[in-house]
Amino acid sequence: MQDKLKANVAKHERLEQFNAIVSEYEAALLRYAARLLGNSSAAEDVVQEAFIKLYRRWEGTLEPSAGLSAWLYRVVHNQAVDYIKKESRRSDAHQRHIEEHAVMSAPSRPGANRSADETRLNVRDALEKLPLRERELVVLKIFENKSYKEISEITGLTTGYVGNILHHAMKRLTEILKDTGAL
């Protein structure tokens, strides 16, 4: 009886810690996934899965830490890769995705800051032209402001390699942005 009560209390505590973790990381992970996938509803699914995996597989205490954060980013990355693979297998679904993009790319909301919207679209399109690995590093470094060490923990790449890929990616991005007239 006593043991059952203890187990319940522990479960309740873990659930509360879990909720705190969700609140802490959801915004950053949604942003990261949306930029990896170029699609915010897919990003939502991917982040949701990552949190479920965290609850089931994380063995330590559920508190914000560098390790836990890196783990979450890594899971989101893997889920995003799976999603992209699945999506490219279903070619008509892929087509739909492109059409959705066309709709989203149409200049929106007259009176809104159109040039800011255009820049955002240009950047998103340019990012989508990069291979996933490069896109990931750009997002982590430029948008999420992670250090090379943190990026290395998330991706499993050495910091030297992170620097190399990022160098390439930024060069390519600069060229693409120049071509589209955004720069």
Partner: peptide, 20 residues
Amino acid sequence: DTVDLLRSTMHDPEEPQRLS
């Protein structure tokens, strides 16, 4: 310039801040 341009698009008002 590239870094600045990228960073100027960081706060997308249409991006969700929370899970639904």
